[in-house]
Write a protein that binds this DNA or RNA. Structure first.
Lengths: 342, 342
DNA sequence: GACAGTTTTTAAAACGATACCAAAACGACT
DNA sequence: AGTCGTTTTGGTATCGTTTTAAAAACTGTC
């Protein structure tokens, strides 16, 4: 182990005071001669500033936190990547906490981040109470909430997708193609996004004068297994189309439909949400409402930076609602029906 | 903003000295009476220790760094998730740097992490020189190298997949099914994993007495586009099977094969590497060598923790080589040929 | 009730950087 | 050369915690 080299050794080596070294590091005015001496010493000793010490003194860590439920899910991966890229440009680093589907763990993760003196937090929420987030946000560590609302949020910025509208569009698409017995597999309804999507589905059915059948609504967790189970408990209702709340559910649904001897989309159409890329690859290619993950990440990062840089000003909290995009592929049967009509 | 509450305020509130508070925080011996007073004060003031200050004093950050080239890639997502889970159990946190495909950025990321006083680093390398990593590793910050070797690594622990053998098995599988004109789309050959896979391919061809044709070897970057381009410049050789170095390349290959009016696997079989899940979903389901991402992440984390906890002992560097697993699905045509034979 | 031995407690010195302030150096102009 | 104004420089306090070493408070024994 090389003995730790601090600013003091550098100062000695360069024959200057520590404050001069500090000034060089922070690009403040130093005579060219001394600057060169310092830079030379830094290189010679292979000195790296201790950011912990710097942050302790300046009370600025240049770290932002990102709390996500599942890092393997490329939706969150994309958010993380996009947010990280924005932050990096401003000299911030990203620390990611992977919490799973527990609100307490999300809260713990945020608390730890505060202890680590992060300058701000982005929370990909899975629902639950906003108390902890509110408190942290008040205590000078701005929080941006992503994807799901929390109960009783106060003055928190947020970046959401217009889930009601997304689900409405998707269901509407099915209605317009001519499906009449449209079922839905929702995510856990304690999540606002799941609830909102259900609302969009309901509204679309109503607007297209289709009877709503509560038994055509199945709540599931976001797994392939969940999709399969939902479908198998749904088949007796003879749906002609299914709205799945995300890709995993859609994949599970397709699998189970086929296992039961039916075809997608000929017997039952399937449409989904979420990830753009994967939907393209599966069989049949999935018609989806594509979530703008990159845009979400970027928007969240920018909102956060704005808060951090203007911490003394009181800006009213902002809610950004981003649109999802309908991507029509084969699984909804649109192109086939089109062929028949023409 | 609530004024920052420090250990001093807590001490005052509880009517004790700061060291007593510190002792409570660190579970050292304190009389029950004072302990209760301190805990009460902590709750009342909503005190959270400043980990920057603690780390500065103790010279232990309880943070590990993970450097990855692409967080959107679920292979790395899985590694990150698995490693994070192991570290969390030991009270460590994970800070992730997403660097893209540039070795300098990987080095920069590691340097920054050192500045941030991480206790250790896991590097999902993309090749290049080991100088920076060697230096950091010597300077008391252990590094575990993952997935790709670096040039001139000294005393670095590593976790690798047996790429030669993987590629060999995959190619062998194609040979045994009966393919004779087997092409390969490799990744960038400056990466050891890509080179090793090529080696495995070569050996398999040799062992099965197939002529090696250099023009059947195409180097590509790891993109869908890359896969398509490679195939289009390969078709004139009339391959009957293609080994693709990862999923993206495989998907691109399949797309291009179809665009050119051929069928997979009937006209040209395709097999790939990497991700287990996605391969299952695409059309046709992909025969792959599945990379044990979770195991890689866990192994790396454990190696790192071992180094961190035994920093004074000199343990010789370890290289863990994990096996990949052949998963046979439709894209290699095995089941079809089987049907024909039976 | 005093003494030795043990435990609990505290005040003060770190850790490595920056910020503040006063001293030193510089330059230009009488 | 002396004065004034500006820029550059270095000494020192400080950030919030742990650690160290020494004082204080117990404990039990004679």
């Amino acid at each position: 182990m090389a003995s730790k080299v601090t600013i003091i050794e550098v100062a000695k080596e360069a024959g200057v005071g520590t404050s001069t070294v500090s000034r060089v590091l922070n690009a403040q005015s130093v005579s060219n001669e001394k600057r060169q001496a310092v830079l030379h010493a830094i290189r010679k000793l292979n000195y790296r500033p201790n950011l912990m010490a710097r942050n302790l003194r300046t009370n600025v860590s240049k770290i932002c936190g990102l709390v996500i439920p599942d890092i393997c899910n490329s939706f969150f991966g994309q958010i993380a990547g996009a947010a990280g890229a924005i932050l990096e440009k401003q000299g911030y680093e990203l620390i990611i906490a992977n919490t799973g589907q527990k609100t307490e763990k999300q809260n713990d993760a945020m608390q730890t981040m505060v202890s680590r003196q992060v300058d701000g937090i982005m929370l990909c929420a899975i629902g639950g109470k906003a108390d902890v987030a509110n408190q942290i946000n008040k205590d000078d560590c701005p929080i941006v909430v992503i994807d799901n609302k929390l109960e009783r949020m106060e003055d928190l910025d947020s970046v959401m997708v217009d889930n009601v509208k997304s689900a409405y569009s998707l269901t509407e698409h099915l209605c317009m193609i001519g499906y009449r017995r449209i079922a839905i597999i929702t995510g856990p309804l304690e999540q606002s996004s799941a609830l909102e999507r259900l609302t969009g589905y309901r509204r679309a059915l109503a607007d297209y004068n289709l009877q709503l059948d509560e038994e055509m609504i199945k709540e599931a967790d976001f797994t392939i297994r969940g999709g399969r189970d939902a479908v198998s408990s749904l088949l007796y209702k003879k749906p002609d189309a299914i709205v799945a709340a995300n890709n995993h559910l859609a994949i599970g649904a397709i699998t189970e439909i086929r296992k039961s001897g039916f075809e997608v989309p000929d017997d039952i159409a399937v449409v989904g949400f979420d990830d753009t890329e994967v939907g393209e690859l599966i069989d049949p290619p999935l018609t989806i409402m594509s979530q703008p993950a990159v845009e979400i990440g970027e928007t969240a990062a920018r909102l956060l930076l704005h808060r951090i840089c203007n911490e003394n000003e009181t800006i009213p909290s902002q809610e950004r609602v981003l649109p999802a995009r309908l991507i029509v592929r084969s699984s909804c049967g649109f192109y086939k029906k089109l062929g028949q009509i023409v």
